[in-house]
């Protein structure tokens, strides 16, 4: 515990210089790098990676937007420029396996980069955490901070419907020994937070309600004190929703990695 650099954040450049290669590259994503709230998720995940002793690396300043919002907003040129730039970097380092805490980055790198020459094994951090649990590297803690607490999980569209990842996040939550309560619309029927498809970067079109309010109301209806998310955009939208409903004292929005890190007292 005396070690000042308990949590290391090795970059790919350093590793390559030492002739080393990581087990997995942690793709941080723009939200994980710049958004104050989501930086906490990045840090939590770094702590977990350090704790379980995974040999990982990040790209640091060499990382760049995957191009997801550009593609979904219709700007295919910009998307492909970004994608090819990233693929050059990733292939240059001979990256084989990537983990990311952003379902949008996850979907793009996993499903859309192969057409442009980027072929990697890509995992969302929920799947990665589930694997750590399966391998016994993270275990259920009795008497933890969340024991018996009501938690509801909000499915991210880009994780759920887009990639059929429904079980991993729930399995992760199970290790908290909390009470998992589902919203009325969950899994394949889950309601979007309202931010996908580049909506994050514009005002909503005219309507009678904001989507995140609709979803937040549903989450609040469960009576859960914690809304668990697994996506930076969902995190923003649900936090805004809770704030809008003036419930931020009673209801907190956390990412899966944060919950695990807290439970592990990291």
């Amino acid at each position: 515990m005396e070690d000042k650099n308990l949590y290391k954040v090795p970059t790919m450049a350093e590793m390559a210089q030492n002739g080393e290669s990581p087990e997995v590259l942690f793709w941080v994503g723009c939200a994980g790098s710049f958004d104050d709230r989501y930086k906490e998720v990045t840090k939590a995940f770094i702590k977990i990676l350090n704790k379980v002793g995974i040999k990982f690396a990040v790209l640091g300043q060499e990382e760049s937007c995957t191009g997801d919002p550009a593609r979904r907003a219709g700007n295919e040129f910009l998307f492909q420029m970004q994608a090819m730039g990233n693929i050059q970097v990733l292939n240059g380092y001979n990256i084989k396996k990537i983990v990311t805490a952003c379902p949008h980055c996850f979907n793009t790198i996993k499903n859309e980069y192969p057409d442009l020459g980027g072929n990697y094994e890509v995992m969302h951090h929920s799947e990665f955490l589930q694997q750590l649990i399966n391998d016994g590297r993270i275990t259920l803690k009795e008497g933890g901070a969340f024991e018996g607490k009501k938690i509801t999980y909000h499915d991210s569209c880009y994780l759920g419907r887009a990639n059929d990842v429904y079980e991993a996040p729930r399995k992760v939550l199970e290790t908290l020994d909390a009470e998992l309560v589902e919203m009325k619309r969950c899994k394949t029927n889950g309601l979007c937070c309202g931010a996908g498809g580049a909506q994050m970067f514009k005002e909503p079109e005219k309507g009678n309600k904001d989507i995140n309010i609709e979803r937040t109301e549903e989450a609040l209806d469960t009576g859960a004190g914690i809304i668990a998310t697994a996506c930076p955009f969902c995190m923003t939208m649900m936090s805004d929703g809770v704030k809008n409903k003036e419930k931020e004292e009673q209801v907190k929005v956390f990412d899966l990695a944060e919950l695990i890190a807290k439970n592990e007292k990291l």
Binding site: C30, S33, F34, D35, T42, G60, S64, C65
Partner: peptide, 20 residues
């Protein structure tokens, strides 16, 4: 800036400093 938000690209890795 290589990100959908207007942040200086040089700030991309600042979180690691913050963590330290």
């Amino acid at each position: 800036s290589f990100a959908p938000w207007k942040f200086p690209p040089s700030d991309r890795f600042k979180w690691a400093d913050e963590l330290a």
